[in-house]
């Protein structure tokens, strides 16, 4: 554990809390992509099955349980409790275009051809692109509420901070995991355009609005 890793995890935690609070306080999930949330739930389920096969630390276990539980709570709020507020007509990204390549890639490019390892690899690749339906939704409607922007910023920062963590680990422990690093870089790059808009608009008090 180093400061980048901890900051990354806290950023991830913050993103989820922002999202849940936004939905709960406004009693609405308008502007949030249910498809991205389903992909995140699938990501954490596939990755954290190792909760039952190996113990890392109490911190690790608590965070994993939190990520799995909150991802399903988000889905419950979006698809059941506040279903009437879900913008499904703007949430039209075809997730099979992500799931199919990610599945094939996980079967081909992995550290070890075992059940758990392929699920882990699948989750790493899937997480990298899981935000695309959300970004697609923002570009389709041309705008995002400030709170949604803060959520996306925290979520994007998390993998960026992990990249610094990997650089740190490479120099201090000679540890590196190419699959996680490459997927993490791809994941972060997908947010670049959003980061730019966040700094130039949202932080100056303007709404995130794309040029028509």
């Amino acid at each position: 554990m180093n400061v980048f890793r901890l900051a990354g995890d806290m950023s991830h935690l913050l993103a989820i809390i922002i999202l849940l609070l936004k939905i709960w306080k406004t009693r609405s999930c308008a502007g949030i992509s249910g498809r991205s949330q389903l992909l995140f739930a699938l990501t954490y389920t596939a990755r954290y099955l190792d909760l039952v096969t190996n113990w890392v630390s109490l911190y690790n276990t608590v965070m994993k349980v939190f990520f799995i539980a909150t991802s399903y709570a988000t889905i419950y709020l979006m698809y059941l409790k506040f279903k009437a507020t879900y913008d499904s007509n703007h949430d039209t990204f075809r997730v099979e275009f992500l799931l199919l390549p990610v599945t094939i890639l996980a079967l081909v490019l992995n550290h070890e051809f075992s059940f758990m390892e392929i699920l882990w690899t699948f989750s790493i690749y899937l997480e990298a692109v899981a935000i695309l339906p959300q970004l697609f939704m923002v570009s389709k409607t041309g705008e995002a509420e400030s709170i949604t922007s803060h959520y996306l910023f925290a979520l994007g920062s998390y993998r960026l901070l992990y990249i610094f963590n990997w650089i740190w680990r490479y120099y201090t422990e000679e540890y590196y995991d190419l699959i996680a690093i490459i997927a993490g870089v791809v994941q972060t790059v997908l947010y670049c355009d959003f980061f730019y808009l966040y700094f130039t608009k949202v932080l100056k008090g303007k709404k995130l609005q794309l040029p028509a």
Binding site: T53, N60, K64, F67
Partner: peptide, 10 residues
């Protein structure tokens, strides 16, 4: 063996 890799990150 189900898993020989231990992933210590989240």
């Amino acid at each position: 063996i189900l898993q020989s890799f231990t992933h210590d990150e989240l």
